[in-house]
Design a binder for these strands. Structure first.
Lengths: 255, 255, 255, 255
DNA sequence: GATGAATGAGCTTTCATTCAT
DNA sequence: GATGAATGAAAGCTCATTCAT
């Protein structure tokens, strides 16, 4: 560990983004700045992103730069999710990018590190995507519904992301809490507030908001896993609508 | 001198069950023969199973026979779920059983094969456990609720089973449909019938029963995954109750 | 370290030899059983050694068995001493023996381990060789002289042994005391006794015997190193004679 | 972000010596100009050398110039002797000096080259140190004894030097004659002359002077190696005295 | 049938050296 | 000149699978 050139694990949402305050769109006031990274298919889009093109002479910033950590993470994500962690050789990633294996190891000291950075990046994208879409809805009900839809949409459009989440758990069970559960802990608060406000206003049954949040969380993760494993059988829009309908109205008759 | 681990300690899990007809307890008549494998903790109990010891001359059937495929699958399940698929080597399994590696390879031609057989066994246990518990409830509502509870209870008491399900998917993404989804396809029919009956009787809102089944399925799998990953935060009983409450009654006020 | 088949480092002088009590030939009584392994060129001879040929059906014992640890150590010694530790690929050793790399790793869990076993084996051979030759001389003076000659002869006939000693130190400086110094600690006592007897008999100047032992030790190691590095310029016999002459009589005139 | 070790800490050692004429102090006339590098601890002292700072405009000569080959060799010597040749990577040396790896490669075309230059520098220091101390003794006997003492003192005070000598041999066995043996070839002549003079004067037994030189050479190298490997057990002064005593007077009684 | 020694493809990681900036 | 990002050959070690005993 003496004089080696080593970079440590990149924080989530890495590329060139500034401080990555994983805010939530559920703030009760309905305000929120739209962040530029989001979009229906953030992962795919990130390929051609670029609000402002880098100054001509800056190869590091170029999205085509196959040596940027962005490019590496993207390719790594693709291969890991397509083939699994063990089945993916670091050499393959390098080959696909047309760069040397050493270049990857220069930025990510181990394969494990590379993989984990890949997952972190996904979580950052997911978070920002949900927040951006939910923030746009002023009405609290709409906001909850939009959050649900956005979550499903993200994974629908980034099928590899589901794989990555699974792989993280399967290969690195030792990591105390998988990355994507941290998201939940950090971001549940604004949603809880929002639900409490609705209850206070008599628009929802009185009950501990955790009960709702947990159910949604579980149902959403269950949905993406099942969707992914079995192949979705219903259009996404319909799935979101069904979930919202049952959760809001229940399955008992309204007398 | 060899350094081999030669323990014969039996891990928890697995009865010496016979052929596994994956029936469902949701038959509308409410009848169902109780099968012997079930119980609050089917896996743990299986350790002391055995109403009648096998006929003396049948070494293959003996639970102590570490060369039986039952014993092999049991040990394999324990090690796979504790360490992961790649991290577990066949030698370890053999060592733990005190048998030769070749003996395992004679029964399971590849490691993959062994692993998959391990998962199949779990699914069989789960199915029989749910059926047995649900069948015991004559009232259709109770039966649905009991099915939910049984599902959660099974995984609560067999944490390794969740790992196994994950591992199957993470390591063998090529398998078209993971084992545990087949369960659903095969066994959904009786539940669908049961739900339709309830709707016809006006006890449930009219809606396509798939909508309910899918939500439950998703929520249940989501629940066990999240429980397992993050450590359960609520007692199982409460979790089941919350799920049943919201699904049945919804979160909107009843005015 | 769980269920892997692993053998740990072999003690020095391993092959089929019984308990390896590294006795010294300097016992003042002049008695000593001749051990069978020794000879003018023990390493080379060991190739064709074999007091009693193994029973026909015992491939493990066969000296031609390229998979025996003896054969592996011998080939390893040859290559390590010819090329150095780092420059020698385990694959090379396997190739030279016509066996698989895994076979080597099965007996020696790491390359370092293999190397160290190689050195231990040399030290065992050296010790036994010196003892055997010295024991044969009844007169104490002759015994000292014979010990000196035997030491030089051993390394003269096993040039690789010198390399190995050096390599051990160069590559594994962390090993507290290199193997070949342990020899000295263990075996100095009988020599010390022998020198004291000579002094008491008035056949040597009175002085602490350590002074003589240390000088001899240093001069002998210096000699083999220099011989080896620079290519010997004098016949061995002459070198031993010179050393004995000067050490016994000094360089001052006897007036 | 890079994790590079960028320390500029200077290791002990190395004057800014000029060209190294490897003269010998044993010239029979007893004359010899004292050279400035010498001293009881030449390496350590060199740290504070510098009576007069170099002319302002000479950055190459500046001892603080971490890019000078002197500084590079000094740091290289420290790291090589502390960690071994293979274990030391060029990046580490550059980091320690706070310079770029390319800068080292401009002065030393390969790592091997750098290492060998490091050893050559040590030999030059040793030679000059011995010569300087021996030259100061007018009496031939004293001069021999002083040469012995100086040799031991040098390595005693520069333990890294022993490592370096070993490493040279261990890693570069192909180099026909190791650097430090060349010293002997070049410098033996004056010592031989000195011994012959003593014999002619009847102050030493008549014998080929090589016999004495070789013994001393071997005993001295043996001594430093053993000292270094095992940890010296006697004070240096005593070791030198013992060696001189036995070599001069022998171990036989003086009748 | 049971065993476990033997095999070698496969994969991670290191680091000397180059060369564009 | 100085730099350090990039490269890729090289080597240690693992473990599924085979098969002679």
């Amino acid at each position: 560990m003496t004089g080696k050139t080593r970079k440590t694990r990149k924080p989530p949402g890495s590329p060139g983004t500034g401080p990555d305050k994983l805010t939530s769109a559920a703030s009760t006031d309905g305000t929120g700045a739209t962040k530029p990274e989001a979009g229906p298919n953030p992962v795919a889009r990130s390929e051609s992103r670029l609000t402002a093109p880098p100054p001509a002479g800056s190869p590091e910033r170029s999205p085509e730069n196959p040596r940027s950590s962005e490019a590496i993470l993207e390719t790594a994500a693709t291969l890991f999710s397509a083939q699994g962690y063990r089945q993916t050789d670091v050499q393959q990633i390098a080959d696909r990018l047309g760069i040397g294996k050493g270049t990857i190891y220069r930025q990510f000291p181990t394969k494990e590190n590379l993989f984990l950075a890949t997952v972190d990046r996904i979580i950052g994208q997911l978070t920002r995507y949900i927040d951006r879409r939910a923030e746009a809805k002023p009405d609290p009900f709409d906001r909850v519904a939009e959050g649900i839809s956005a979550f499903l949409a993200y994974f629908d459009e980034n099928p590899g992301a589901v794989e990555l989440l699974l792989l993280e758990r399967a290969e690195f069970r030792h990591r105390n809490t998988p990355t994507y559960l941290e998201y939940n802990e950090t971001n549940a608060a604004p949603w809880r507030r929002l639900l409490l406000d609705l209850m206070r206003a008599g628009r929802l049954r009185e009950m501990p908001p955790e009960r709702i949040i947990d159910l949604l969380h579980n149902a959403l993760y269950g949905t993406i896993f099942i969707n992914h494993f079995a192949g979705r059988r219903k259009p996404l829009r319909e799935q979101a609508a069904d979930l919202i309908d049952i959760v809001f109205r229940g399955i008992l008759p309204r007398d």
